[in-house]
Nucleic acid binder design. Structure first.
Lengths: 150, 150
DNA sequence: CTTTCTGCAAACTTTTTGCATCTGT
DNA sequence: ACAGATGCAAAAAGTTTGCAGAAAG
């Protein structure tokens, strides 16, 4: 099993553990949301994720998805990718970059083998602040859109 | 004059030039918006910029600011910093990083002398797409917020 | 039983759009 | 003159919030 797949497979237990430590609860909804996100091969936004989980949990409300994603992100269990229209969420916390297509909005992973390692920052930057994460975003036009436009 | 200041000082003429090349027009509103943004020492969002320009041009409408920023960004004259609440815009295209405070939302510049150069990507990434820009975002808590919370 | 979570609905913020009018070139 | 820009207003899109009832520990 690859490193990234292995990482995803442990998300559910990791989530349960972090929740427990913080006195929060593992609910059916949260479990389903985490499962769906961990299985996602793309970088869905809240609404997209909602529709996917609703295939199994039709009663799920949008609020719950937003709130769960907030919990996940604030505990460092998923990465928030800030985007012009809507935030995207990435269950994969292994080092990699993001290519964002400015035409179709797709977010594609770029391995560290392709572009070199994610730059590492010290825990604190002199005169600036405490560092939580370092996040490289590459903007451009993806091949699919490039061909279409030709 | 420092490199960054020099860069800012030329924004106005550069904008006029790019507009002309593309058959677009230099209007009073656009001029004022570009001036204000080029002079900004922070990373304002559309609404903040609107308020600043309105001190001199009270009749300016929000739409015009949004549309002008879109023109600027799509012609590579300013950088769009995608953020959870609202986009921010940076007139400074010289290489540097952005530290985003997750508590207060401030965006602070981090020089390449502090964290090393912005990773450079080739013009095209094999099997992915054409690269327009590479953008490093560092998330954390700024010193001002850190002290407050203590 | 207590604290936390959910769903509903309504509000809020940021951004976009259609249209008539006005302006730069 | 004519393409392009502006302002107005209304709508869209994404997200947050207050609250009553439901559920986890």
């Amino acid at each position: 099993m690859g490193k990234r797949q292995e990482f995803r497979a442990n998300r559910e237990g990791e989530f349960a553990r972090v929740l427990a430590v913080n006195g929060l609860r593992m609910t059916q909804q949260r479990l389903e949301i985490v499962r769906e996100l961990a299985a996602a091969q793309d970088h869905p936004d809240a609404e997209t994720l909602l529709h996917r989980v609703r295939r199994r949990v039709p009663m799920l409300s949008p609020d719950t998805v937003y709130r769960t994603l907030e919990v996940l992100a604030s505990h460092g269990l998923v990465a928030r990718i800030p985007m012009p229209r809507a935030n995207r969420f990435d269950p994969d916390l292994t080092p990699h970059h993001h290519f964002v297509c400015s035409r179709c909005g797709r977010v594609l992973d770029v391995g560290v083998d392709v572009l070199g390692p994610v730059p590492s920052a010290p825990a604190a930057l002199e005169g600036i602040g405490q560092v939580d994460s370092v996040h490289l975003q590459i903007w451009g036009v993806c091949d699919a859109c490039e061909e279409e436009g030709a």
